[in-house]
Simulated assay, not measured.
Amino acid sequence: MNEKENGRDTLLAAAVRLRVEGRPEEARSLLLSLSAAHPTDAEVAYQTAWVHDVLGLEAEAVPFYERCLHGPGLSEEDRRGALLGLGSTHRVLGRYDRAVEVLSAGVEEFPDDGALRAFLAMALFNTGEYHACTRLLLELVAADGQDPYVRQYRKAIEHYARDLWATG
């Protein structure tokens, strides 16, 4: 590892620590500097987007989310987080169709991710897609399997999730 990479790693770790410790303004300052120095670094872009979301600066987070998702360099976990973050951010900004698009792509890429599916359901609700929203939520409830009463009716819930108009 060269000196530049080592410095980047140290500063990125410090910025993440600041965010986790509840000092997002300091983290943001450090991450903006890192982003300027490493404009193609997906991990830096992801952390920069995240801190903007933490600060309620959703519109400023979007380009960083887009940057981190358009190239290699993110772990699978961070890619999931970035897709969820970007989709959720579009939703918060009232860009519901774009939120559905991003979150649908996330669910397609990570079909086992319940958080992506839950946020997609919220965006579908915002676009008036109530049937699709309810179907996703019912599928999540049925898949959870923790509640003994849900487990008892799991097959029925799954059936109605596929066709909410069914009567039996």
Rank of each mutant, 00 (worst) to 15 (best):
Y149I: 12
R19H: 05
T10W: 09
A99F: 04
Y96L: 06
D144Q: 03
A36F: 09
T89R: 01
R80H: 02
K155E: 12
G128Q: 00
R80V: 05
T10A: 15
V44A: 10
G114V: 12
G22E: 04
L140Y: 07
A105E: 00
V141Y: 05
R117Y: 04
A161F: 01
G73L: 00
E77A: 15
G85I: 02
V16E: 02
A123T: 06
H38F: 15
L31G: 08
L34C: 04
R8W: 07
E139R: 13
R67K: 12
E58W: 14
A13N: 13
V51G: 04
G56K: 05
H38A: 11
L140H: 05
A13G: 12
L136E: 02
Y130T: 12
P148A: 07
I157A: 14
P63Y: 06
L86G: 07
D163N: 13
L137Y: 08
G114L: 06
L164W: 00
T134Q: 08
L164R: 03
G73D: 00
Y160V: 07
L138P: 05
E58S: 13
T10E: 15
A61C: 13
A49F: 05
G56H: 10
T40C: 12
D41M: 04
D41P: 00
G94I: 06
H52K: 12
A82E: 02
T89F: 02
T167N: 09
V62E: 00
E109V: 14
E43F: 07
W50N: 10
E109Q: 12
L12R: 14
R28A: 08
N126A: 15
L140E: 03
A161I: 00
L136A: 11
C68F: 02
K4I: 15
C68G: 03
W50R: 14
S88G: 11
T10C: 13
G106E: 04
R95E: 11
I157L: 15
